[in-house]
Design a protein around this nucleic acid. Structure first.
Length: 653
DNA sequence: CCACAGGAATCCGGTTTCGCGAT
DNA sequence: CATCGCGAAACCGGATTCCTGTG
């Protein structure tokens, strides 16, 4: 039994830190009644011995019972300590113990349901909407939709034709017949008073007194405590998104054909609740009822509803810190590590397949090469006209690729240029092997710009093939694998005596570049860079001033040769030292920020990099004695609790 | 075997809010 | 001590992957 192997020292050191929140306090009860379940259920190592029981019974000591792995245990206060040690096993070990084998995700699930946004509050009468220059009072329904648009007036969206067209069409659906007949052109609509009103409102919110802000904060905290947590099996877990999305105008990314459409308000009647039968079911708001109450423990969601833009289902699920998410995350990295073991074999295989007689196999092999080498996404087919035109590997078209037998002194250069996920541009020129190049030429023969590059391939064919190569292997595992292995290598190479954080960020950046995680340069980038430069210049001045003083002090000391002036020299020396350190720090910061201008580190850190690489002794935090707080903030530490908690110091991805 | 649709879960960049140091 | 400005964190919700069932 694993809990017996635990070191007491680690228990004592750890109690009161990371994990008591994972242990459901409400399920520890002091109990003076006899618990009839005692005899047959206390099967774990925490079972009290017969002599302990005799002693307890004799002395009338209180005892506790608690649930663990769906079993009720009883224990004495002393034994409870042991029990908590057991619950404080490294998370992944605990998860192993708690795992279900029948595909179910939980046994017990209790929550309070979603939080709805407040109902619409009509505008005060003085705020007017003008049509064709004339003031006009709108019906509440039409007015609400108009406010959605008014709030976005200084956003680029409202300049886009599709957005305006979609909005106007959906807005008219909310109008009364009179309004409908009157309001026929968007360009004659004047929302500026409404827009100003909302700006003033948000300004007023900022101007609120401390007390008012405090009150709002407390109310939010209360809602969080009531609705933001659920009980899943034996743990109280944080819910990820317990608030229903408020109505508004749909904001698609890229050239989305549906941008500007009305995202309607979700009512209790649209909501499906999922919880366990034996839990206290969430109550629908007074006067309403849920669409359905379901008890499906094969899924992880608590609440779902169908959204009206794409007709897809939205869910309320748990926070990344929860067992159910963490376990999945861990599993993801374990699969990527298994890929590491067989990747050489798989590479040999697809290289072999480049010369296959069958076109479908060649295409599969070249696509896989791209996925492996360039960390491209799989590229599922998308509904044309329903979504923005974006592609991934399998859905690349002729127009996205250019072949250059020679370029910039390199042979066989492939130029890729396409809109990827979220319409982020992927642009890359890469030298490939001759066989790949020849194959690509073959795939391009007799095709038009809009034709598929891999016309005999799609993601399901590819994934089916991958599944045969390795259990659990899919296209995205390559992204995870290549990202994590790159971080590990980069950390090995880059970390030196220079700034640790800069090195870490550079390794992280290498991964972000590989995964094409770009961002628009922050609006304040130039300014903040400028500010930093000013600081650096000031520091430089300070430094030269300090140096001057030091020189003067030295001269004095030479002249006077007394204790006092010697001391002064020491002081000045220290000052110079201090200031130059501060200067270095600023300069590192500037370098880091500049290099990060168009790169988003967060996504890879959160989704692709095995946290154990960063935590572990061999590679990073522990090796370089960098506190974990320097690389993971609070949320990230919560999400990666399972990795931070791992004891294996020889971890290798 | 394949096309198709629906469902569940992960991934992802932008926007808003928060908290802290400087003034 | 108040408030101002900024960067980081939190939030948000859309986008994509991948699986399953049906026919």
């Amino acid at each position: 039994m694993a809990c017996l192997n635990l070191k007491w020292s680690s228990f004592l050191a750890g109690v009161g830190s990371l994990y008591e929140a994972l242990f459901l306090p409400a399920q520890i009860h002091t109990n003076t009644r006899t618990n009839t379940k005692t005899e047959n259920t206390a099967t774990k190592s925490t079972r009290e011995t017969r002599s302990e029981k005799t002693r307890r019974t004799a002395t009338g000591d209180p005892f506790y019972y608690f649930c663990y792995s769906d079993t009720v245990h009883t224990t004495t206060p002393r034994a409870l300590t042991v029990t908590i040690v057991c619950l404080r096993l490294p998370l992944c070990l605990r998860w192993e113990e708690e795992k279900y084998t029948d595909g179910s995700k939980w046994r017990f699930l209790e929550h309070k349901g979603p939080v709805f946004p407040p109902p619409y509050e009509p505008l005060p009468d003085r705020i007017r909407f003008y049509y064709d220059g004339k003031a006009m009072k709108l019906s509440p329904a039409a007015e609400e939709v108009a406010t959605f648009y008014a709030k976005m007036l200084d956003h680029e969206y409202t300049t886009k034709d599709i957005f305006r067209k979609n909005f106007f069409k959906d807005w008219r659906k909310e109008m009364t017949p009179e309004e409908k007949s009157k309001i026929t052109e968007l360009k004659k609509c004047d929302f500026t008073e409404m827009h100003e009103y909302f700006k003033a409102q948000s300004e007023a919110r900022k101007q609120m007194t401390k007390e008012e802000k405090q009150k709002i904060k407390e109310e939010n905290e209360r809602i969080l405590q009531e609705y933001g947590y659920c009980v899943m099996d034996n743990h109280r877990e944080r819910i990820g998104n317990f608030r229903i999305e408020p109505p508004g105008l749909f904001r698609g990314r890229g050239d989305h054909p549906k941008m500007g459409k009305l995202k309607r308000r979700i009512r209790p009647e649209d909501i499906i609740i999922n919880c366990s039968k034996d839990s206290a079911h969430p109550q629908a708001p007074p006067g309403s009822r849920w669409k359905e109450l379901r008890h499906d423990n094969k899924v992880t969601w608590l609440v779902s509803w169908t959204e009206n833009i794409q007709g897809s289902i939205k869910y309320i699920m748990l926070n990344p810190s929860s067992r159910i998410k963490g376990e999945k995350d861990w599993q993801k990295y374990e699969t990527a590590r298994r890929l590491k073991k067989s990747v050489e074999h798989i590479r040999a295989q697809y290289r072999e397949d480049w010369r296959s007689k069958e076109m479908r196999i060649r295409q599969r092999a070249v696509a896989l090469y791209f996925i492996d080498k360039l960390a491209l996404r799989a590229g599922n087919e998308k509904d044309e006209g329903e979504t923005a035109d974006t592609v991934g590997c399998c859905s690349l078209r002729v127009e996205h690729i250019r072949l250059h037998p020679q370029m910039d002194g390199q042979d066989y250069v492939v130029e890729l240029d396409f809109p990827g996920k979220d319409s982020i541009r992927y642009y890359n020129k890469v030298s490939v092997e001759k066989r790949v190049f020849k194959n690509l030429q073959l795939f391009l023969e007799n095709k038009q710009a809009k034709d598929d590059l891999f016309d005999r391939l799609n993601t399901s064919i590819l994934n089916k093939h991958l599944q045969e190569l390795m259990d659990g292997l899919t296209a995205k595992v390559f992204r995870t694998y290549n990202a994590s292995i790159t971080l590990q290598q980069q950390l090995k190479e880059l970390t030196s005596r220079e700034s640790k954080i800069l090195s870490y960020n550079r390794a992280n950046r290498a991964v972000a570049v590989l995964c094409n995680h770009q961002r628009a340069p922050p609006k304040t980038f130039e300014k903040s860079m400028h500010n930093l430069q000013t600081k650096i210049d000031e520091k430089k001045k300070q430094l030269s001033a300090a140096k001057k003083e030091l020189k003067a002090a030295k001269a004095d000391a030479k002249m006077l040769r007394d204790e006092k002036s010697k001391k002064a020299v020491e002081m000045k020396k220290k000052a110079v030292q201090r200031i130059s350190e501060q200067l270095m720090k600023l300069e590192v910061q500037a370098t880091d920020r500049e290099e990060n201008k168009q790169i988003a580190l967060g996504t890879s850190k959160l989704n692709y990099l095995d946290p154990r690489i960063s935590v572990c002794k061999k590679y990073w935090c522990k090796k370089w004695a960098v506190p974990i707080e320097k690389i993971y903030n609070k949320t990230q530490r919560e999400k990666f609790a399972w990795a931070i908690d791992m004891t294996d110091e020889d971890f290798e991805f």
